[in-house]
Design a protein around this nucleic acid. Structure first.
Lengths: 206, 206
DNA sequence: ACCTGAACACCGTTCAAGT
DNA sequence: ACCTGAACACCGTTCAAGT
């Protein structure tokens, strides 16, 4: 009676995302996802080769909320916005955010967003080969910032020590000025640094 | 007879690192680390509160090979070198490299290296509060590049698709020019972009 | 003080059937 | 074609003893 009539990759990913939202990332086991759907754990293996592939699909699903970069905006604004949007979309689903950070999705949504990033870098004046490298750098940076946010937001107290460690060094600033590790401000700052580097690169090769 | 007389955090971390080097990261379970030492798995809990804390110690141990940045060098050269050195030290121990990337060590070695980074950023002309933010950005970038290298180097075929995906976009470069995801070149390029951004930031606030 | 051993409450995944 | 159920080979960790 607790069984759903259909089982598709999409209904499975939906159920897993829902479960992760409700009970956290560690709850997303094959057994408990199956429980959410009212089916046997093994039924999932008909639609995904293994657990990682299932989580990849959930991660991609979470990125549907990210708008495609608007070509009417300046390229640097587009890059900064897409970074913020990816961060926000991932953190809206804390259960899968860690997976998004650890394995940037390359499925449907990932490719859509990647194309927007690539176009923005082209408009920045980078040649295709440079744009590819810069896109990888940007993906890595977004992933890293997101990973920090995920851990800072959950129970990794170690991350609060980063500020303490740096703050304890000679000539450190008064504590109040520190940006929290994983904060939106710190994320935006890092992306801004990278975008400034891209601008310098584009100017250098122009 | 297969038992070691002493069990200390240091001998445990050594054994775990050795095991990881020999049999890979997944082999570093409490049970198998204990097997390497010839002791009961529960004996490890007398020296570490849980598995994560043990792996943190192993990760920090792997960073002993990273030289402290040489203050005689220009600040940007110092930053680029320490990034390369961290990457090399982590990849020299593939079993723990993923953990270094996922949880940048904050213990003894991490603090030593962090102090060197902070000093270099001060020499770049950044005020302490800015240097703290930039140091966090650099740590995030190194961690992200390292994470890419770890996955590209092991069995995550998905990562080779990144180039394919970007390469399949309109106006993509000829395939041969692409830097492999996770390569040393791509890592250095990303760090270089960030350092260029830091330089721009320092110039702007000078 | 330090280590052990059995047990608890789980995992992902394979395999042989079921309908 | 699609799903099930039992089983395999593991996990991290708690708890009550041992020496």
């Amino acid at each position: 009676m607790a069984r759903t009539p259909f089982l598709t990759p999409s209904t499975i990913a939906d159920a897993a995302l829902r479960l992760g939202d409700r009970e956290g990332g560690e709850a997303m086991t094959m057994r408990r996802i199956a429980g959410e759907l009212g089916c046997d754990p093994m039924a999932l293996y008909r639609h995904f080769p293994d657990r990682m592939a299932l989580l990849d699909a959930v991660a991609d699903l979470a990125l549907t909320a990210v708008p495609s970069p608007d070509p009417a905006l300046p390229w640097d604004e587009r890059l900064r916005r897409v970074a913020d949007d990816i961060r926000a979309a991932a953190l809206a689903h804390p259960g899968i955010a860690g997976h998004v950070a650890a394995r940037p999705p390359l499925a449907e949504q990932g490719q859509r967003i990647g194309a927007g990033v690539f176009a923005a870098l082209g408009d920045a004046g980078l040649a295709p080969a440079e744009a590819t490298r810069a896109a990888q750098a940007l993906v890595a940076t977004i992933a890293a910032g997101l990973a920090m946010a995920v851990r800072a937001g959950t129970r990794d107290a170690r991350w609060h020590q980063v500020s303490d460690v740096l703050g304890g060094l000679p000539s450190a600033p008064p504590g109040g000025e520190l940006h929290t590790v994983g904060s939106e401000e710190q994320f935006s700052y890092t992306v801004r640094l990278l975008v400034a580097g891209i601008r310098a690169e584009a100017a250098g090769s122009a």
